[in-house]
Design a protein around this nucleic acid. Structure first.
Ligand code: FES
Ligand code: FES
Lengths: 142, 142
DNA sequence: TTACTAAAAGACCTTTTTATCTTTTAGTAA
DNA sequence: TTACTAAAAGATAAAAAGGTCTTTTAGTAA
């Protein structure tokens, strides 16, 4: 469904939110280990997320990644647009240059509703709503 | 949605079916040009499809690609499994090693129905049904 | 202010995907 | 049987994705 970068960012951010709720600011070594992702690659990705303002980080002793108090929830869509652009969410399933309802490909009628459902999912769900769901069910992240 | 290989194979096969219906066996140069795909790459992909038995081809003058008379329709699923394996059709949306209904990720409840819809689409639609839809609407392939 | 800690930055590497080109082989038609 | 045609095969390569490692910088705590 999504590429590795999106997956690692998604799992990483959800883990950060989860730990923040417990009053902790996890560091990259811990995050990577817990979400079973390559440490340095995940670091690079999360650093990019910080630059984009999706999450914050603090250097030095006691530092780590965290979400600012009062920051509003982050829809998955925002993340996906940064990691893979809009092709996943708006592209034609048949590979045409663009999906054009006026001149639909033979997959359009069947595929468009599915793509709509995906769009609804990623605009409704947020990093925070996923984290909350984890807290409720208290499952592992793997 | 799908990768380039799948897209080129899909568009190529639909084009072949479309031309077959008109009593023609298109060659690779024509196919690539019509579906706006890189010629040699498309050739390689279609040759693989021939080896897999999804389509047939004939060398020499008057040769080209074609579907055997009486061959049964090819569901898109069959093509996708060959070009990208089952990850697209059965993988976990959150990137867990596998989607496990007993131990679902926080996306599972929302994502599983969408994945189901995709599976239904690719097992119901075939190269032939897509080609027929084109014939009916007489649209271009781009 | 020192020692330590953790992220930031960026160079570097590997694998996979996507793409191109040349040579060979097999077939057709005349 | 010759000339031609078109796919088959496979070497090569560019680009993108995925991943690793080292050095630097900024911050904290004691
Ligand atoms: S035109 Fe192909 S999905 Fe809309
Ligand atoms: S467990 Fe993630 S989609 Fe089913």
């Amino acid at each position: 469904m999504f590429n590795k970068e999106t997956e690692y960012a998604l799992r990483g951010l959800v883990y950060i939110q989860l730990q923040n709720t417990n009053g902790r600011r996890p560091g990259i070594v811990e995050i990577a280990k817990e979400i079973e992702a390559p440490q340095f690659y995940t670091a690079k990705i999360l650093q990019r997320m910080v630059k984009l303002g999706l999450v914050s980080s603090l250097k030095g002793k006691g530092g780590g990644f965290y979400f600012e108090e009062g920051k509003k929830d982050i829809p998955l869509e925002e993340l996906i647009m940064q990691t893979e652009g809009n092709k996943t969410l708006t592209g034609c399933g048949f590979g045409l240059k663009q999906c054009d309802c006026e001149n639909p490909c033979p997959l359009h009628e069947q595929y468009a509703p599915i793509r709509e459902a995906i769009n609804k999912l990623v605009s409704t769900e947020t990093i925070q709503s996923l984290a909350k769901r984890y807290t409720l069910k208290s499952k592992t992240l793997l």
